[in-house]
C-alpha cells in the first residue's frame, strides 16, 4: 500500500533523509522511531505529498505521490504532530468539510460513529478554539478516519490524550489495520510501538538503521540469547558500533 524507494531529501547542504526504502502492506502497522532530527516527520510529509523528494519515488496504493498526487492523496490520511484545526469552526463543521473534500457521500452516520468512538459527542457544536489539546487531537483523528483511508500516517498520535483516549486511539489503530489499512506511526513512545506495531523502522540522521518485523528486530539486536525490550533494541540500534 505504501512504497518508498531510495527516498532522499536534502535542504541545501543538510541531508534530512538519505536513500530510505520501505514498504507497508495492507493490515501492517509500521512504527517509525528515531532520535530528534532523524527524518521521521520529513518522511511522513513526503509520503503525504506535502514536500517533494529530492530523489526517489514514493507511492500510495500504486499511485506515485509526485506524479499523481490527487489519486494518491485520496487514499491516505495524515495527522501531523500537534494538528491545528480551524479555530472558528466547530467539530462537526470540520467533519462536514472533510466529507466534502474527500467526497464522502452520506457522511453523517459515519461522523456520528466517530464522534462516539472518540468521546466527542458533547463537543460537536464546540468551536475548535475552545477544545483542549487532547480533544483537538481526537477531532483531527476523527476527521482523518472519516473517508476510510487505505493508508494512515500518524505523527505522535498520543500527545495530549488521557488514559481512556490512549486506549481508544490504540484500539482504533488496530481496528483500521485489521480492516486492511496500512498504518505508519511516528513516535518517541516505544511502548506504543511495542503495543500496536507489526513492523519497525529505525531512522538515525536520515539513514535507515533497521527495517523489519518487530520480532525479527528483537533477535537481530539480542545479546547473550535474551530477547531484548524494544527500548533496548532502539538504543543498541542507534549506538555506534564501538559504543562511544
Amino acid at each position: 500500500m505504501i512504497q518508498v524507494r531510495d527516498f532522499h531529501k536534502t535542504y541545501r547542504e543538510t541531508v534530512a533523509v538519505a536513500g530510505l526504502s520501505f514498504e507497508v502492506g495492507p493490515g501492517e502497522i509500521l512504527g517509525l522511531v528515531g532520535p530528534n532530527g532523524a527524518g521521521k516527520t520529513t518522511t511522513l510529509r513526503a509520503v503525504a505529498g506535502i514536500i517533494p523528494p529530492t530523489r526517489g519515488t514514493l507511492g500510495v496504493g500504486g499511485y506515485d505521490v509526485v506524479a499523481q498526487p490527487v489519486a494518491a492523496k485520496s487514499l491516505l490520511a495524515y495527522v501531523p504532530d500537534d494538528p491545528r484545526l480551524f479555530e472558528s469552526l466547530t467539530v462537526w463543521e470540520h467533519l462536514e468539510f472533510v466529507a466534502a473534500a474527500y467526497r464522502v457521500g452520506d457522511f453523517a452516520a459515519k461522523a456520528e460513529t466517530l464522534l462516539r468512538q472518540f468521546e466527542l459527542e458533547g463537543k460537536r457544536a464546540t468551536l475548535a478554539q475552545e477544545l483542549s489539546r487532547g480533544m483537538r487531537q481526537k477531532a483531527a483523528i476523527a476527521c482523518a478516519y472519516l473517508h476510510d483511508p487505505r493508508a494512515i500516517l500518524l505523527d505522535e498520535p498520543l500527545t495530549g490524550l488521557d488514559p481512556q483516549g490512549i486506549r481508544t486511539m490504540k484500539d482504533s489503530i488496530l481496528r483500521r489495520a485489521r480492516d486492511g489499512a496500512a498504518v505508519v506511526i511516528s513516535s518517541h513512545l516505544l511502548a506504543l510501538v511495542e503495543d500496536v506495531c507489526t513492523h519497525l523502522l529505525i531512522l538515525d540522521r536520515g539513514k535507515r538503521i533497521y527495517f523489519g518485523r518487530i520480532e525479527e528486530a528483537r533477535s537481530a539486536f539480542a545479546q547473550a540469547g535474551a530477547s531484548p525490550s524494544l527500548e533496548e533494541v532502539f538504543f543498541r540500534a542507534i549506538q555506534p558500533p564501538n559504543g562511544s
Partner: peptide, 15 residues
C-alpha cells in the same frame, strides 16, 4: 496559508 489550511488541505486530494 494558515496552519490549519496546511494541516488539512496540503495532504487532501486537491490540486
Amino acid at each position: 496559508f494558515s496552519v490549519a489550511e496546511v494541516d488539512f488541505l496540503f495532504s487532501a486530494p486537491l490540486t
